[in-house]
Design a protein around this nucleic acid. Structure first.
Lengths: 131, 131, 131, 131
DNA sequence: GTGGTCTAGACCACT
DNA sequence: GTGGTCTAGACCACG
């Protein structure tokens, strides 16, 4: 999987990493149980600090997206993805709300907004067929 | 308009302020041309430093949401809201993409996601009738 | 002469007033010795504070552009305009320098820049024929 | 590069800083991609508060003159300078217009004015050969 | 060590 | 009384 980082982004690199790996799983490019590069290798590949990759993996592990075994390495959680908890839905809403408010101010109607979301949804889901 | 801040949030206070004011405009609680509290008044009201409020106002001004009249105060831009630019749509997509990927991982299908978005959209838009 | 003020501009209103009156003189719309509105009248006409007009007139008087007589009112200096002093040239250069540096960064060559300046020069000078 | 500040100037310190850095780029003293001093170092060097330097850097970043790499520091934008947009030209004209009108009042003719501008242009451009 | 954020308190220009 | 600017000093996230 190709990792694309924007060093100028306001988003921390470790967050970008987390997002890209989650998107990789969502798209099917990364299968359940599939091995991820070691902290050391990934850091070398994308040219960032060890700590940065480590932080990304730690966060992904905390949320249940991946498992980190001592010597065996890092794998996408073979037992499946984290649940659709209330906590997650609350966090999702608090993230979506400002985006939607901004869109309303700029005169997007509900249909336009739903269309944008549907398009991204399909784009993320269908990415694995391009790989 | 009531401003709710979460001092524990990872989101900077000035960002929370920006979001709340944009939501206030989106909901109709703040009308075009309506005066906003002065930097010092708002800072005192919500218990933060005036520079923090100032930064929020500056960002809102840059994006065209508000106008800062010299020595008279701050008003919601009476000439209307900023345009639906390509830049904005790009930013919007880059913000939505990780949220959607995460939702896919947690087994939300497209319909559920669209429903969540539609609900928030209505909630934001109808807030003014509660005021 | 029509005064155009931009209440959202970063430039203070009194500065805008000064600029507009100087441009009026430069264009010939205001002749040497010609009467200007009283502080009170001008303030009422353009809807600004008395102090603001007063400050503009005071600055123009200090630089020798206008004369203010106690009861007779304000006139464009009938004895001619202020001299082309070294002080003025120094000030002019310090104002032009950052504008030119910015233009160079954005790849304007000398000819383009001279053309822009010549065009504005003609525009200011010929404004009186349209009036 | 040597930064010269006039603490008595009406121009804010952060604006002077912005101007000097832009002139440094225009003159070639600062190359594309070249590192600028850290906020704290520059602040200490020129004896101002770090927030003042920060504001200058933020403005330069917004206009695309520099890039701020997360936790690595500040560099002159290696991807080139901002475009020659219509907005920029409009701003440029509104800045030049009062300067030109004042010059006309003081009896500068077009040739004199063009000569002054040409001289400053060359002066800015050739500064790098003195360095 | 870097920039980002926040606080506290001051002075000034403008209206 | 308003926003704009500046200082001084602090803590944090990031890498």
């Amino acid at each position: 999987m190709i990792i694309q980082l924007d060093m100028q982004s306001e988003l921390p690199i470790y967050s970008q990493l987390v997002n890209q790996i989650i998107e990789g799983i969502a798209s099917g490019q990364l299968q359940l149980g599939e091995a991820l590069p070691s902290v050391r290798n990934l850091a070398a590949d994308i040219g960032v600090n060890l700590h940065t990759v480590n932080k990304a993996y730690t966060l992904l592990k905390q949320d249940g997206y991946i498992q980190v075994h001592r010597q065996k390495g890092v794998v996408v959680n073979p037992d499946g993805m984290p649940e659709l908890t209330d906590d997650f839905l609350r966090k999702q809403q608090s993230e979506l709300r400002p985006i939607i408010a901004e869109a309303i101010c700029r005169s997007m109607n509900k249909e336009q907004l739903l269309a944008v979301l549907a398009e991204i949804y399909d784009d993320v889901k269908e990415a694995h067929s391009e790989e």
